[in-house]
Design a protein around this nucleic acid. Structure first.
Lengths: 203, 203
DNA sequence: GTCTATAAACGGATAGAC
DNA sequence: GTCTATCCGTTTATAGAC
């Protein structure tokens, strides 16, 4: 349970572009997309605004790229491994702890949750479709648990949305300098959710 | 349990200013504060930008007023009645259902949670202080429950933050035209949280 | 690749007529 | 109270030199 997450990144982390994405993501998380200017981003990576434009097509495009990157991470770190777990309860446990445990490392996931409104229509559809895959995975898992009689008497869709609200909320208030480690918080959150969702083992 | 919430508003709802607050709040919730221009707000209330300035001092001031209004509602609809409930478990139940049940009516509460960064320093301190009162009320309630042995083995602070994430998240995804009523969703959410937080009754 | 300079548009806010 | 017109700062984005 205390195993380190080895993030197999779907992008060359050493490239300048990747550095720009990471820096921009960090700024956007703290200030919000619209309050973050290209000047801010350029300065943070040690460039002028014009220099920055050598690497990216525009601000909209930058946001979309960051979100695609975040979805890539979710896909290969959570969704793909989860899909290979046959037992629904184990799968849910894995998704919760894995996602919660990633929050301090991959800030871009917060952007995925909060800045969809800033995308243009075409890009928004793409991102929403990818997010829906994640949502459906969790929703189907709860559905399975319900069929197995393991779920409490809850509406599956509402429970899924509630679950996401709590897990995505982590990135908002978590501070690396707090008294609890990211792993400890992830475990606490997973515990609270699992107790709330699952019937107590009876036999 | 199915009783209607009679909102004793701390502001004259019929005034033009109140209409501006409501309209602006609605826009800010969907587009975000920085992406909402004074032009957008003016047009939505049927005025020009200059006309709008007859009613409000500026954009920053508008945001602060909306947040103060939202906190007034929370105070007199949730916090004040809750403080008169002596039993901690009953108090928690009340806070959860009451807050969750308000989400479709008072959109401004979402702004309270998401746009604090857009405030100037002085106003931000005021709002954060008022929010802390709410947070502390819930935190103390969980603390009491813990002392009574009714709480599961959870970190009280983390549990409180998790609780707020889920409850505040409601306003983000709730749609009035969905298949479940606001009350039903509020009940579901409260149930999930209470089962997750409290030990099962043993005797 | 990175810079200076600048275009073009938009934002918040105000002056002053009616 | 509401308007037209305008000021001024900021923003995204580009042109073109080095």
């Amino acid at each position: 349970m205390g195993d380190t997450i080895v993030v197999q990144l779907p992008l060359d982390v050493t490239s300048k572009t990747a550095e720009i994405y990471r820096t921009a993501a960090s700024l956007i998380v703290t200030k919000g997309f619209n309050a973050t200017s290209m000047n801010d981003i350029a300065a943070a990576v040690g460039l002028t605004k014009a220099g920055l434009y050598h690497y990216i097509r525009g601000k909209q495009d930058l946001l979309f790229s960051i979100m695609q990157f975040a979805m890539d991470v979710v896909d290969c770190q959570v969704l793909e491994p989860a899909s290979q777990i046959v037992d629904a309860e184990q799968r849910l446990r894995f998704i919760l702890t894995r996602h919660a445990g990633m929050t301090d490392q991959v800030k871009a996931i917060t952007i995925l949750a909060e800045e969809v409104a800033a995308l243009n229509e075409r890009d928004r559809e793409t991102i929403i479709a990818r997010k829906r895959q994640y949502f459906d995975c969790v929703r189907n898992t709860l559905q399975e648990l319900s069929a197995e009689g393991k779920l409490r008497d809850l509406d599956v869709s509402v429970a899924t949305l509630n679950l996401f609200a709590m897990v995505l909320g982590l990135a908002r208030w978590y501070r690396p300098d707090g008294k609890l480690s990211a792993e400890a918080i992830a475990e606490q959150t997973a515990k609270l959710l699992l107790e709330g969702l699952l019937r107590p083992a009876s036999p």
